[in-house]
Nucleic acid binder design. Structure first.
Length: 491
RNA sequence: CGGGGUAUAGCGCAGUCCGGUUAGCGCAUCUGGUUUGGGACCAGAGGGCCGCAAGUUCGAAUCUUGCUACCCCGACCA
């Protein structure tokens, strides 16, 4: 079977690329660095969106939409922000085309140069905070809890489907608060929403923590992050939530009158997750047979495949299958009955495995006669024949079991590949030969962080919230440290 | 932006060194038939500006020059 996919153990990144394309999630487009998200991949994104959107609303947020374009001058208002994003911006300089004088085609009309260039948003803090200035006057206007679903553009040098594309889809929350405490609380709350989503819906365990100075968001005071471990031992940042302090309020002069009647700058947060999560979903669970989707995000949760000879048998089996489908749908499951006559059962089995459908039911003449159905699990690749009576309850329970099993498996993998390490030799050995998360002491300086990165390609992924205080010595410099941090090579 | 590579059917490739009938192969597609409990088989068919442009030549996928695009490795990054 593996002959249809590159073997995961032989070439992980090729395997990933093949899988994304063969499972019909996405493909490269005619535009450099930009992908086409195909219907099956987009269906997963829609499921993610629906759940996240529900979570955002349950925590008091509302959706709005801001422009794709940002006037260049807005960008320079926050110094660290412009510094961080300037090198990867797409810029609109003209607004018109015309036929070339020599008739050879269409050219940019040099007379149509914009007075002020527009930046295609790489993130929307600047346009949003320039708008918030007009929306906020008093503490009564706060908190302002807004989310936007949008596309953004970051002109990256090298791209990979879902993991890093020039244009990508995301949501970005931008909130404004009267106090520092409230803004910090909000940033942490949203990090909690993200980790809840990634762990309980995607089935991917995460480490929560704060980013170092060099890794934090351009313009933030603190960046909180969730870090997940992929099957090749590399870390993937799953989502970030930023405490922005008063940086953007000061840059855009957003002041409010507080309860004491005094003017103060507003406190801010922003937070986002992207279509990159689809890449994480693939890299965390999939195997050499294809995707393994968690039931809670699978576009198709159950597929029914009929096995038959001739129309007569097909009719009899279809009657059973459609009744079963109706029963499962009534229980809230998304079911597909694949009665295509153009493909054989074996082909369909392999195809739905490739696409990661959690449960496959097969019904043949034997099952029709004996009142049974063959139930195959994608996560374990096991099959059992069970009675049709009570099948809906069985499948419903199985969905939960699969959801949990996928998470347990990923968690076990992460635990097996998380090392606590105290010497430089051991550190290099693990990073180079085994991969995974390494909890080690670091002296806290950007210089040492940089040096470790240059020597090993490993970076500090986070200062984990859950790591206990512990006296130790930096693995590189030997200087004192009070807590272990999370190192890994990362995507 | 540095270093390396590739461009031939929808996809993956051979042919290019050493120019020569009608440019092949596998997969996919279409037609007909037999099949259907783990990626079926047989027979037939369609599909090409050989990346673009110029040059050399009786003759160019093949040689020369220029251009363009894409991929890989680095620096940048969710």
């Amino acid at each position: 079977m593996a002959r249809f996919l590159t073997n995961r153990e032989e070439n992980y990144s090729q395997w990933y690329n093949d899988l994304v394309i063969k499972a019909d999630l996405a493909e490269n487009s005619a535009v450099r660095g930009c992908m086409v998200i195909k219907p099956y991949g987009y269906a997963i994104w829609e499921k993610m969106q629906a759940e996240l959107d529900r979570m955002f609303k349950a925590t008091g947020h509302v959706n709005a939409y801001f422009p794709l374009f940002i006037p260049k001058s807005f960008f320079s208002r926050e110094a660290a922000h412009v510094e961080g994003f300037a090198k990867e911006c797409a810029v609109v300089t003209h607004y018109r085309l015309k036929h070339s004088p020599d008739g050879s085609g269409i050219i940019v009309d040099p007379d149509a140069r914009l007075e002020e260039e527009l930046i295609v948003r790489p993130t929307s803090e600047t346009i949003i905070w320039s708008t918030y200035k007009d929306w906020i006057q008093s503490y009564r206007d706060l908190p302002l809890l807004i989310n936007q679903w949008a596309n953004v553009v970051r002109w990256e040098m090298r791209t990979r489907l879902f993991l890093r594309t020039t244009e990508f889809l995301w949501q970005e929350g931008h909130t404004a608060h009267a106090t520092m405490e409230e803004a910090k609380e909000e940033a942490l709350r949203m990090l909690g929403v993200y980790s809840d989503f990634v762990e309980n819906f995607m089935g991917v365990p995460v480490v929560r923590g704060v980013k170092t100075e060099s890794e934090k968001f351009a313009g933030a005071i603190d960046t909180y992050t969730i870090e997940a471990l992929m099957q090749d031992g590399k870390a993937l940042q799953g989502g970030t939530s930023h405490f922005l302090g008063q940086n953007f309020a000061k840059a855009f002069d957003v002041k409010f009158t507080n309860r004491e009647g005094k003017l103060d700058y507003v406190w801010a947060t922003s937070w986002g997750v992207t279509t990159r999560l689809i890449g994480a979903l693939v890299m965390a669970h999939a195997d050499n047979n294809g995707l393994v989707l968690p039931p809670k995000l699978a576009p198709i949760q159950v597929v029914i495949v009929p096995i038959y000879k001739g129309n007569e048998q097909l009719d009899a089996i279809s009657a059973i299958a459609l009744e079963l489908k109706a029963g499962l749908e009534k229980a809230g499951l998304t079911v597909k009955y694949d009665d295509r006559d153009t493909q054989k059962p074996g082909f369909k089995f392999a195809e739905y495995e490739l696409k990661g459908v959690p449960v496959r039911l097969a019904i043949g003449p034997r099952d029709a006669e004996e009142g049974t159905v063959e139930v195959a699990r994608r996560d374990t690749l096991t099959k059992e024949t069970i009675a049709r009576a009570g099948i809906v309850e069985h499948i419903t329970a199985l969905m939960d079991e699969i959801q949990h099993n996928i998470y347990r498996k990923a968690l076990a993998f992460r635990e097996q590949n998380t090392y606590s390490c105290d010497t430089w030799e051991e550190f290099c050995d693990i990073i180079e030969n085994r991969g995974g998360f390494v909890m080690a002491h670091w002296d806290g300086t950007p210089e040492t962080e940089e040096q470790i990165k240059n020597l090993t390609k490993a970076t500090v992924r986070a200062l984990p919230f859950d790591n206990p205080d512990e006296e130790g010595r930096c693995i590189l410099t030997g200087k004192p440290s009070h807590r272990r941090v999370l190192f890994a090579r990362a995507y």
